[in-house]
């Protein structure tokens, strides 16, 4: 119905093949192209495993954008001034726009948006864990827009050096927009940090609650994570989780301290000898529990998405009706 499906599964001759079943010559040529820094485009030959991993990655990213719109979205109608309200609306609108771009990018690999959304709703495919935590106060929205978006920028900038053309191009535009979110988030945080005692307390409380999910944001430590050397060779994965986490800490811990905030980890420090940040175990057990469905908001988030799917079904059916043509979106 969205018409972005560039490649249909039935046209893909190696659909479902294991890597060792692939044509070795084609595989060598494919890897050579990536090594030379060429981009892979939808019509190009690619091993099925590459296709599968990218669909998984881009789809999860797209889901994270729409689910991520929910915790912040509920604060638009509560935003305390015109300036904040307009900025927050624009931000959340961008996030939904990112989902749209990313679903389109994933569709070029042969999975339709409808299938992806169905897999989200059935729990088969995941989204970023960070959105399974609640945004309880206005300060939470400020912390999300600053630090979660900062994490997203690090992650996305890294991925934008990847090998798949449509994903890379989507990410370039996304990163450009995210940089405005970050500015908005930081500005909101500064107002709270330099505001009334109540505002400062609200901000510290938000940071206390968000620190752990933010530490989890980049994924489990390299010692526990199962990405293979192959994904790095194919430029699907470009930095390890720990590398990205270190980069985040390097860039943002000093800024957080500068605002007079306390990071809720007494062991957090930069080791002057190794140049690396050390921190307490952020409870990776919790990370796995939340990813497997047992977080504070997993059920609620999916319930909201299912509700929206259900409520909008008649509209989508109407758009598929014979005389109804697809309506060009406004924005």
């Amino acid at each position: 119905m969205y018409g972005n499906l560039v490649v249909r599964p039935e046209d893909i001759e190696n659909w479902g093949k294991k890597i060792e079943e692939e044509d070795p010559e084609k595989l060598a040529e494919f890897e050579g192209r990536i090594e030379r820094g060429e981009k892979i485009e939808p019509q190009d030959w690619m091993p099925f495993e590459y296709r599968r991993q990218l669909i998984r990655l881009i789809e999860q990213h797209a889901h994270s954008e729409i689910i991520g719109a929910l915790p912040e979205g509920t604060w638009i109608t509560r935003a305390p001034t015109f300036r904040r309200k307009l900025a927050l609306m624009a931000k959340v609108q961008d996030e939904v726009g990112h989902a749209q771009l990313l679903y389109s990018a994933a569709e070029t690999l042969g999975k339709s948006r409808e299938q992806m959304i169905n897999d989200l709703l059935s729990g088969k495919s995941k989204y970023s864990n960070v959105f399974n935590y609640p945004a309880k106060t206005w300060a939470d929205t400020a912390i999300i827009a600053w630090l979660v978006d900062a994490g997203a920028i690090i992650n996305q900038t890294t991925n934008s050096k990847g090998s798949y053309g449509p994903y890379v191009r989507a990410l370039e535009r996304i990163c450009w927009e995210e940089s405005f979110h970050l500015k908005y988030g930081y500005d909101s945080v500064v107002y709270l940090a330099t505001g009334t005692p109540k505002q400062r307390a609200m901000l510290q409380d938000a940071l206390n609650r968000w620190w752990r999910p933010i530490m989890h944001f980049f994924g489990p430590p390299d010692t526990q994570s199962v990405h293979t050397e192959k994904l790095i060779r194919w430029k699907v994965k470009l930095a390890t989780n720990d590398e990205m986490r270190q980069q985040f800490l390097d860039m943002y811990v000093p800024k957080i301290w500068e605002l007079g905030l306390t990071i809720p980890d007494p062991n957090l420090r930069k080791n002057p000898e190794t140049g690396r940040w050390e921190y307490s175990d952020p409870d990776w057990g919790e990370f796995w529990r939340v990813i497997n469905g047992d977080g504070p908001c997993n059920k609620e988030r999916l319930a909201v998405r299912r509700f929206a799917e259900e409520k909008g079904r008649w509209v989508r059916e109407a758009l598929r009706a014979p005389h109804a043509r697809y309506v060009t979106p406004l924005a």
């Binding site: 729409i66 939904v96 726009g97 929206a308 979106p329 406004l330 924005a331």
Partner: peptide
């Protein structure tokens, strides 16, 4: 925003 029948409408209403 976040609850439209299709993403394009979330975006249109947000805009």
């Amino acid at each position: 925003i976040g609850l439209g029948p299709i993403l394009e409408e979330d975006i249109a209403f947000a805009s």
